[in-house]
Amino acid sequence: MIYTGKAHKVGEHIDTDAIIPAPFLVSTDPLELGKNCMAGLTPGWVKRVKAGDIIVAGENFGCGSSREHAPLAILGAGIPVVVAASFARIFYRNGFNMGLTLLEVGDQVARIKDGDELSVDTGRGVIKNLTSGEEIVCQPVPHSMQAILDAGGLVNYVKARLAAPEARA
């Protein structure tokens, strides 16, 4: 899968309270949550985002609570991919489960500036910085995670498993 969009840079240790503050957790609707994506970082942050844009973050993106509302808010804001130096564990599972693609790039994240246009090839693990002309190579999305993404998220993945003849439920 190749995604092309503008990079919106955020810092290190962006926690889930920053991604979607608790007062907004009275909804499970991605579009509703998306209206307040990153409101705990900068109120109104989402106004700068166009559908297809990409979040580029530092270390430990998504730390803190287990709220799945965080990847939902990002998807609801129209952002299909997050590139980060590294991700917090629960967020990493949640992202793929919800159908949000996550790529870890380590220190190379410094080679992307806010506002750069990116082309992200998730299958090959290549990020082209169309603004600077640089290319970042990283681990592609792991196969087990790609299987969940291909199914359209964990819901459909389990649905298929439950419907299979050897299903245990």
């Binding site: 709220r67 799945e68 629960i90 599972r93 949640n94 489960n97 919800m98 998220g153």
Partner: peptide, 26 residues
Amino acid sequence: GADSHTCTYGALGAFATGMGSTDIAA
């Protein structure tokens, strides 16, 4: 548990960890 502080039960010698809601639904 769909709560990050599920790890509390490690105090009792349980392997307990937080996950998202859909992992929990599964």
